Simulated scan of single mutants.
Amino acid sequence: MELAKLSLTELRRLQSRVETEIRRRSDSARRDLLKKVQKMAAEEGLSLSDLLGSASSTGEEKQPSAAKRKTKPAAKKNGTLPAKYRHPENPAVGWSGRGRKPQWVIDWLAQDKPLAELEASAGK
């Protein structure tokens, strides 16, 4: 089948058929796998619900839901951070060490010079 020779309508029809076939095969694979797992559980004298329900009782922890998760409060944005690194030739130019590296830092590192030499506290 040469796709270049198909019209746009034919391509969309083909796309729809492909998506339908993918869903059908996915559903079929899911059903087959479920049957295999049920059979394996039955061989051990368990039902699938016993197997899935016992995950928490065997010590395996489930991921907490988003509502139950404890999260840290969002950090306050107080503007710019103080410069941790200073430009070697122009001390007025600085970089906090966060985010994208400025070109002068990239150039400095390309010369195999340590970043520590650019630290603002180094007093260069």
Rank of each mutant, 00 (worst) to 15 (best):
K70T: 11
K101S: 10
R23W: 06
Q63S: 11
R31I: 11
L6I: 01
Q15V: 07
R86I: 13
L115F: 00
P82E: 10
L118T: 02
R98N: 10
Q111C: 04
T58H: 11
A42Y: 01
P114W: 09
K77T: 08
E43Y: 04
A92D: 15
Q103C: 01
K84P: 00
T58P: 00
W108R: 09
E60Q: 11
E10A: 15
G53S: 15
I106V: 15
E21Y: 03
R12P: 00
R100V: 14
K124T: 06
L11I: 12
K35M: 12
T58E: 08
E89V: 06
G97L: 02
Q103S: 11
E119A: 12
M40R: 02
D107Q: 03
A55G: 04
Q103T: 14
M40P: 00
K39H: 12
K36I: 09
S47Q: 10
A55C: 06
Q111A: 15
S16M: 07
A110K: 14
Q103A: 14
V93S: 04
R31N: 08
A75F: 02
S54Q: 13
G123N: 14
Q63T: 12
Q38D: 10
P91V: 00
P64D: 09
T80I: 04
R98T: 11
D32P: 00
A120T: 15
A41M: 12
L51H: 03
S54R: 10
E21L: 15
S57L: 09
S16F: 01
S65R: 03
R98E: 13
P88L: 06
